[in-house]
């Protein structure tokens, strides 16, 4: 019974994965190609690391990467703080005034087309500057404020769903045992959602690091992030040092994900073993 449908869906899965990975693999392969023509393999002089060397000595790219990292670090941290507050409020406070509004404003940015978010943020910054003289022009500050805003939605979702997995009576028990609300948050709630906060932070960092469209609107002259530099380069066609950059980024992400998967698997195994032992020792 499972055969026909199983074969079909499994074939689709294999083709789908090929579809997902071929472009990435092609970038990796051609990053070691000697030819400037990127897609023509120069067998005689490849593989070569010369595009990696070119990348490292490209001051514009390195400068933009540094700016992107700093913005992503601050944005991810800000998004985690605000997103955690939102997640806790939505998961734990029950009905309160402004709840519907808050829910709406946290889910909408996730799907909102970026051109709209970018345009609206810039127009807001311009109006704000007219009104109170702050923020002065566009730049790293406006980029960071914008990134915090669209990243916090993702953190909220992660934290909220993690909290939904825990019984609210944990917090009540702590309070019952004499802990005040602030203490309950730091001793009970926060430790429980730490994994969610961590993955939320990483997600926010990646989104901020990668964002092009919103950033373009709010960047202003003089502050070009890495995606902006890459975009203006690849608009003119393929460029081998971008392949090298992509390869580095893919490697870092893949290593990180594989490491975290192995760690999670180890944790799960240990947990399962513990639970089996506990069940065996049932009184």
């Amino acid at each position: 019974m499972r055969s026909s449908r199983g074969v079909f869906s499994r074939t689709a899965l294999v083709f789908g994965l090929v579809f997902l990975y071929v472009p990435i693999l092609s970038m990796v392969i051609f990053s070691f190609n000697n030819s400037r023509l990127v897609t023509v393999w120069d067998a005689a002089h490849s593989p070569t690391l010369k595009w990696y060397a070119a990348l490292m000595s490209n001051g514009q790219i390195m400068g933009a990467a540094w700016l992107s990292i700093r913005i992503a670090l601050i944005s991810a941290t800000g998004a985690v703080i605000l997103g955690t507050l939102t997640g806790v409020a939505l998961a734990r406070f029950g009905p309160f005034r402004g709840r519907t509004l808050l829910t709406g404003m946290t889910t909408a940015p996730i799907v909102m087309p970026e051109v709209i978010t970018g345009l609206s943020l810039l127009l807001m910054f311009v109006s704000l500057e007219q009104l109170i003289g702050w923020p002065k022009g566009s730049g790293a500050l406006t980029i960071t404020l914008s990134h915090i805003t669209f990243c916090m939605a993702y953190v909220t979702v992660v934290v909220q769903s993690r909290l939904a997995g825990f019984d609210e009576s944990l917090e009540e028990a702590a309070m019952d045992l004499g802990a005040r609300p602030v203490k309950v948050f730091f001793r009970i709630t926060l430790p429980l959602i730490v994994p969610g906060i961590l993955s939320g932070w990483l997600l926010a960092f990646t989104l901020s690091w990668d964002d092009l469209v919103i950033t373009q609107f709010v960047a202003g002259p003089g502050s070009s992030t890495l995606p902006m530099v890459i975009f203006s380069k690849v608009r003119l066609g393929v460029s081998p040092d971008v392949n090298a950059l992509a390869t580095i980024m893919v490697t870092v992400v893949a290593l990180g994900i594989v490491a975290s998967a192995i760690w999670m698997r180890y944790q799960n195994r240990r947990r399962e073993r513990d639970e089996q032992l506990a069940a065996a020792a049932n009184l």
């Binding site: 019984d167 009540e172 019952d176 004499g178 802990a179 005040r180």
Partner: peptide, 15 residues
Amino acid sequence: YDRRVNMMFQSYALF
């Protein structure tokens, strides 16, 4: 948190 009353929860609510 200021009551000398304690509760055993149905789910036990062990941390």
